[in-house]
């Protein structure tokens, strides 16, 4: 494998990171919206959030990518491939993060919200000053775990012709007929991204278990 092929893989890697970053950033923003809607006392907000979560958790990411790539142009959104993939990943991440954070919000002891109420704090302050910071901390291990899933999930973008890391690997491998070498390198790149994240997630989890035992 020459420098040219390796550069090609690095370009794929850059796209993988880019897609992950977009999916995650979009997922954080819309996931927060989904989580807040999901815990709302109003059914008008809660039910759509439940449906949204169910829809994306109940179908394969592969299908979501297909629908975004082929479906969005049909209803008039003519997006480039990376745009369609970003939309799909963002929606996917918003549902999963929304559900993770819903659980975390509800895991914050009720006394916290009651103390805030007794002090006269309103809903917004109660949520953003008191509940969410604690929920975010509780959710960190699961959130990091999902980040790893999402990073690996971007490889499915290859199905709509997107050349991210996994697809770049296939192309290079077909050119130089050294599949073991090429996929070894590709695998090592995924590993180098995911392993530290997983470790970090596990450290957080252990630290929190220790905090609870106290």
């Amino acid at each position: 494998m020459g420098i040219q092929e390796f550069t090609y893989l690095l370009q794929g890697l850059a796209w993988t990171l880019f897609l992950t970053a977009i999916g995650f950033a979009g997922g954080i923003f819309f996931g927060l919206v989904v989580a807040l809607m999901r815990v709302s006392p109003s059914a008008w907000l809660r039910v759509p959030a439940i449906c949204w979560i169910g829809l994306f958790q109940g179908t394969p990411l592969l299908m979501q990518l297909f629908v975004a790539y082929f479906g969005l142009p049909l209803i008039g959104f003519d997006l480039p491939a990376w745009g369609a993939v970003s939309v799909a990943l963002t929606a996917h991440a918003s549902a999963f993060l929304g559900e993770i954070w819903r659980g975390a919000i509800q895991a914050v002891p009720k006394g916290q919200s009651e103390a805030a109420q007794a002090l006269g704090l309103h809903g917004v302050s109660r949520m953003f000053d008191v509940v969410l910071p604690q929920a975010f901390k509780l959710s960190l291990p699961a959130t990091v775990g999902f980040l790893v899933q999402l990073l690996k999930g971007t490889s499915l973008a290859a199905i709509v012709g997107f050349i991210e890391l996994a697809r770049a690997g296939t192309i290079v491998s077909n050119q130089i007929y050294r599949p073991l070498l090429v996929f070894g390198v590709v695998g090592a790149m995924y590993f180098a991204m995911c392993w530290p994240l997983s470790l970090w997630g596990r450290t957080l989890e252990r630290r929190m278990a220790a905090g609870q035992a106290k």
Partner: peptide
């Protein structure tokens, strides 16, 4: 004042005490 204190664990003692006076 509650049986379980219900202090905000992610805030310092001082921050616990200034939150509501500032917001409310």
């Amino acid at each position: 004042v509650f049986q379980q204190f219900n202090l905000f664990p992610h805030k310092t003692v001082l921050e616990n005490c200034i939150l509501a006076p500032m917001r409310v």
